[in-house]
C-alpha cells in the first residue's frame, strides 16, 4: 500500500464512514479504476491520471445496492455528480466525495475555468485558466471560415461514439444519436447533424471535463465546442451546468416553474 492509498483509506473509511472507495489503482504495472472494500488493502492508489471515475460509478451504482461509496472527485467530477443527483439517478447520501485538485498542467490542458473542488483533500489548488485560445481564434473568424473550420474537423469523425460513451453526463437510456434519422447506419463520417445534435443534448449538462476531446479518435477539439455552447447558455439563461441546486432552463417553463413531465431527464 502506498502513502496515497493509506491516506485515501483513512479519509474514506476511518474519517468519513465509507463502505467502498472508488479510486484508480496500480496493479502489475497497469492503472485501472478499482472498487476497494472497507478493510481491504487499498493498494497503490494513483491520482495522476485524468480519468472519468464518475462514469465507472454510474455503471456500477445499480449493482451496489447498499453502503456508502467514497469516490475521488475533481471539481468537474463533483459537478457531473451534481447533474446526476439532480436527476435522481443517484442518492447524495450514499456518496462521499474526496476532493482532488488538478495539477497546473492538467488545468492548462483542459483550459479549465473552475479547477478547485469544494473541499481539497488531495493536491493543491491551482489558478483557473480564463480563456480557451482556440475559442478566441474562432470568435474572431468570419462565419464562413468558422464553418470551414468545423467542417474540416467533423470530417475526421469516425462515428466511434467515444464522445458519448465517455461523457459522465450523457445518461439517457435511448440515445438520440443512435437513431438512424440523425446518424445513418452506413457511412463515415456521420453528417454535421451528429455534432449539432450532441451539442444540443449536452447544452444544459456539460461540465467541461474534456473527456470527449480526450476520447476523440479524430482529435476534434470537442471541448472548445462545448465551451462555446456553455458560454451561450450562461449568456442566455445565466445557467451553468454542475450547480448543486439550479435546475436546467430546459426543464422549466418561461416563469421558471418545473415542467410537468418528469420523463424528460435530458
Amino acid at each position: 500500500m502506498n502513502e496515497l492509498g493509506k491516506k485515501l483509506a483513512r479519509i474514506a473509511f476511518d474519517e468519513r464512514g465509507a463502505d467502498y472507495l472508488l479510486a484508480m489503482r496500480e496493479e502489475h504495472g497497469n492503472v485501472a479504476p478499482s472498487m476497494i472494500r472497507k478493510g481491504e488493502d487499498a493498494g497503490d492508489v494513483r491520482v495522476d491520471l485524468p480519468y472519468q471515475l464518475v462514469n465507472i460509478l454510474s455503471n456500477i451504482y445499480p449493482w451496489v445496492p447498499k453502503g456508502r461509496i467514497a469516490v475521488v472527485c475533481r471539481r468537474c467530477d463533483e459537478k457531473a455528480l451534481n447533474e446526476i443527483i439532480k436527476r435522481n439517478l443517484m442518492d447524495r447520501d450514499r456518496l462521499i466525495l474526496i476532493g482532488l485538485a488538478c495539477t497546473r498542467e492538467q488545468v492548462a490542458l483542459c483550459r479549465c475555468s473552475d479547477p478547485v473542488p469544494s473541499k481539497v483533500d488531495i493536491g493543491e489548488a491551482n489558478a483557473p485558466v480564463r480563456e480557451d485560445p482556440l475559442m478566441v481564434k474562432l470568435d474572431s473568424m468570419s462565419q464562413q471560415d468558422r464553418l470551414k473550420f468545423w467542417t474540416s474537423e467533423f470530417r475526421k469523425c469516425n462515428k466511434c461514439f467515444g464522445c458519448t460513451l465517455n461523457c459522465p453526463v450523457c445518461f439517457c437510456d435511448d440515445c438520440v444519436l443512435e437513431e438512424h434519422t440523425f446518424t445513418p447506419e452506413l457511412g463515415i463520417p456521420p453528417s454535421f447533424a451528429f455534432h449539432l445534435v450532441r451539442s444540443m443534448h449536452m447544452s444544459d449538462k456539460c461540465i467541461e471535463c474534456g473527456e470527449c476531446e480526450r476520447s476523440c479518435a479524430g482529435g476534434i477539439p470537442l471541448l472548445t465546442l462545448r465551451k462555446m455552447a456553455n458560454r451561450d447558455m450562461k449568456r442566455m439563461f445565466g445557467y451553468e451546468a454542475g450547480d448543486k441546486e439550479k435546475v436546467s432552463p430546459l426543464l422549466t417553463t418561461l416563469e421558471g416553474k418545473l415542467l410537468e413531465d418528469g420523463e424528460h431527464v435530458c
Binding site: L138, Q143, R146, F149, W150, F192, H195, M200, A229, D232
Partner: peptide, 11 residues
Amino acid sequence: IAQKLLDDVGV
C-alpha cells in the same frame, strides 16, 4: 439554444 449552436459552428 439551437440558433446559438448554429452560430458557433458558422451557420
